[in-house]
Nucleic acid binder design. Sequence first.
DNA 1: CCAAAAGTGTTTCCGATACACCCATGA
DNA 2: TCATGGGTGTATCGGAAACACTTTTGG
Lengths: 247, 247
Amino acid sequence: MFVFYYNDFNMANKTKQYCYEYWHPSVATDCVIFGFDGKKLKVLLIERNLEPYKGYWALPGGFLRETDKTAEQCALRELKEETNLVVSEDRLWQLGVFSEVNRDPRNRVISLAYYALVEPCDVVGGDDAAQAQWFDIDEIPQLAFDHAQILAKAREAMRRQIHFDPIGYDLLGKEFTLTQVQTLYEAIQGVTYDRRNFARKLQTSGIVNPLGKKVEGTAHKAPQLFECNKDVFKEKAQSLKFELKKY
Amino acid sequence: MFVFYYNDFNMANKTKQYCYEYWHPSVATDCVIFGFDGKKLKVLLIERNLEPYKGYWALPGGFLRETDKTAEQCALRELKEETNLVVSEDRLWQLGVFSEVNRDPRNRVISLAYYALVEPCDVVGGDDAAQAQWFDIDEIPQLAFDHAQILAKAREAMRRQIHFDPIGYDLLGKEFTLTQVQTLYEAIQGVTYDRRNFARKLQTSGIVNPLGKKVEGTAHKAPQLFECNKDVFKEKAQSLKFELKKY
DNA sequence: CCAAAAGTGTTTCCGATACACCCATGA
DNA sequence: TCATGGGTGTATCGGAAACACTTTTGG
């Protein structure tokens, strides 16, 4: 490999192995990982171990490498490195591009942002992250870079997508109670629903199937467990018209 | 400026002025521009003047430059250069990132894709485009790169967004008839609506305001002209719940 | 026995749907 | 006068919304 040395005001006496005829920006990915603890929406953040913004909380993410087959692969790789969380690509959704000139104090960095909804799990810090931690969505600390903006956009995107894809159920795991679904939807949409109407709609529509099992060890009447029928959900979502009903 | 010469299998004896410590991908933008002629949905394409895919039709777009303040600015700049079409930034919507390793035969190129809905207008070719032309959305020629995939995704994104934002009316201009709106929605959603129900809903909801003017020179009863009340539209769209009704 | 959450049925109301006839205009 | 598309009212139906009491369970 050809290597040479070269100085500029940004970076003195470092190797610059990668040379191009035209200007290239740096490209990074960032992930907004949503979770749900049964009561509140959560977001997974890491504490930065490196400058800039060392010590700040931030979205997990990092630079695209030549070995990353796609930007999605980069996002998932960084997520695993920094939080030990493994997410499958079919649960990763594109959020958008953040390309403001000064969004990173070091360089021109284009961030490709993604989001995912995952079921409750443990996370640990690693690599460039001092630690990883779930935060209540309404108690987010000050974030590095423009990550607050990215997070806000992710909330809105998720809120919209939930009308079309059964992603909400990804937050609940394979089995859940109707109350959990309702609490989740209320947390996401910021509204409340009537428990009886909510339960009836979910069951009669076929979006959930009863598993014939009950939760054990509750200090009250044991609720039934259900699973999500994602095919039915998608079929129902397909019938969406303008404002969801036909004119 | 420091300049030196260097060979590799991609590009022999060219100047490589831009050097980085780490690998950087090329970043480009592509635009899917939707139009509407009163009957059919249209898409704006350019004929490529350069290799690769010289002579193929493609989405307007090009490489991100250091002078582009944002990716959006790049997209709009390239659009203007190639088709002479000026679109305002608030009508430009992010579509997604296309980052497959081999999507461009030359190099690793990340494409940031955008879409916009514009009212009918003339376009001309320029710069890297031999010509620019509107195509009926159901009569798209073979496209360069993965642009067919980008276009497909744009159609779907637009179809979803139209539930939440009054972007459909951007295709119609300031004044329009109710039949035009209906034809447009039918073209986008691929369904038909009852003319009376459609008109009533639009008017009683307050989404359109009558202008008290009529179209002139028709070979039949002259239809009224309306304008879109985008604030009302957004307010209505806000009331969307899961499947649009409250549980 | 008490607290806490689950389960369940009926009525009301509104909006979506289906449907057909007359009107205005230019050719 | 004819062809074309514009404008409009009503009856029905179904799903959404509102609403409260009983049941189960562990403590």
